[in-house]
Design a protein around this nucleic acid. Structure first.
Length: 404
DNA sequence: TCTGGGGTCCTAGGACCC
DNA sequence: TCTGGGGTCCTAGGACCC
């Protein structure tokens, strides 16, 4: 049996959320994002003026002063996202949340009432979201996920494209292969070298040729583009695999203490996220990035799951010292924790981790204080140099010392 | 597009072993 | 140890996505 898959994609999602909750912003050119960063989203009105993807906020301010800059409010977008997905779930049981503003739904098993079609159901989903949330979404319907994703991109905003039961020759001929989900810059270049420019060029190749010339995932894409469903809609999200924090600082610095301090801030933030997830990490990967975008990295394992900055930093110090090259300017640092395991009430059988538990409790109190007084009210001494001078006013926690 | 941040997954190549 | 072949594991880095 053929699957029927819906892909739903929010239109300029962050910007649309802002406009949905603030009528004063409707119909206006707006962009979301913060200073010294790029726009995370911009409204269609801003797009019409010429604001483009990945444009830094300062450039938008300079070239398009009429665009209203709104700071990103992720909690609002997450809330709208949950509401949007819950609407989709009223109509379909199998829904995969792909990102904050996108989902797939398997409509194959939806029992169609008399007079209804998969298309009519999909339109109802779209209309319900518009009516209840004031958001427009674009919808694609096809027999595979890859084709559904191609379809949802074809008309935007508030687009509706069904590829069910129609010949796709025209689509294949006119869609460039680089537009397809999973085929990025490198793969497009490799294809161009082999004379593959369109989806038609790609799918007319022999599968054996694809397997040999490209990576394995592209063979899956090859089948999916031909309408053979290889990837199913997964309604149960797997547990998050990793938690990372990375931050660019300004100006670039070649001082170890400064870089280490920026790094320490990231470790504080990342371990805070771990605690929010009630997870500890067994593995970590750290990196520092030079001014000219070279990355120096290292990784390590922890004997017991780690969720506090003191434990993590104790392990990271020597690694950081090892990868740091003096005489070079650095622009950003980052840490990724992986091997996440739920933090049980107690993981020790021998009473060894009593100290670890105390430390966790201590940082949970820190979390509570930061929640009340702000992130800069309390931080590690090792993060001090990474804080703006005017904010260096409160208590700092000795980073490596025992906290008990 | 001189380039932000948070993710997932794949792969090339070295180390080590038989 | 001048020297084949293959397997596995690990790590660093990259590709890709939103």
């Amino acid at each position: 049996m053929k699957r029927v898959i819906l892909h739903l994609d929010g239109d300029a999602f962050f910007a649309s959320c802002e406009q949905a909750v603030n009528p004063a912003l409707r119909g206006k050119p707006i962009a979301t994002g913060s200073e010294r960063s790029i726009a995370t989203a911009y409204s269609y009105e801003a797009k019409a003026l010429g604001v483009s993807r990945g444009m830094p906020i300062y450039l938008i301010k300079k070239h398009f002063p009429q665009v209203i800059i709104v700071p990103s409010q992720y909690h609002l977008y997450a809330l709208m996202s949950r509401r949007m997905f819950s609407i989709v779930r009223r109509f379909a049981r199998t829904v995969e949340e792909y990102s904050i503003d996108e989902c797939f739904a398997d409509l194959s098993s939806v029992e169609l009432p008399p007079g209804e079609t998969h298309e009519s159901i999909a339109r109802r989903i779209q209309q319900t979201i518009a009516r209840e949330l004031g958001l427009t979404v674009s919808v694609g319907l096809a027999y595979t996920k890859v084709l559904a994703k191609v379809a949802s991109k074809m008309k935007k905003p508030a687009g509706f494209t069904s590829l069910l039961g129609i010949p796709l020759d025209e689509l294949y001929r006119t869609t460039s292969i680089g537009k397809v989900w999973g085929i990025g810059r490198k793969a497009s270049e490799a294809m161009a070298e082999r004379g593959i420019g369109t989806v038609q060029d790609f799918i007319s190749k022999d599968p054996e040729y694809i397997r040999q010339a490209f990576s394995a995932p592209l063979l899956t894409t090859w089948y999916e583009l031909r309408g053979v469903s290889m990837v199913s809609v997964e309604s149960h999200a797997d547990m998050q695999q990793s938690v990372s924090k990375t931050r660019t600082f300004f100006p670039c610095s070649g001082r170890f203490e400064r870089v280490a301090s920026e790094f320490s801030k990231n470790v504080e933030a990342a371990t805070k996220s771990l605690r929010e997830l009630s997870c500890g990490a067994r593995h970590a990967h750290i990196f520092i990035k030079t001014k000219d975008f070279r990355t120096l990295s290292a990784e390590c394992d922890f004997a017991a799951p780690v969720a506090t900055p003191s434990e993590a930093l104790a392990a990271f110090r020597p690694l950081l010292a090892r990868i740091f090259v003096s005489g070079v300017l650095y622009r950003s640092t980052g840490v990724t924790f992986s091997g996440l395991t739920p933090l049980g009430l107690s993981q020790d059988l021998f009473g060894e981790s009593k100290k670890g538990e105390d430390r966790l409790c201590f940082y949970q109190s820190v979390d509570a204080l930061q929640h009340k007084f702000g992130m800069d009210s309390l931080f590690l001494v090792s993060s001090l140099l990474g804080k703006p001078t005017r904010k260096r006013r409160f208590l700092a926690i000795p980073s490596m010392g025992e906290v008990s």
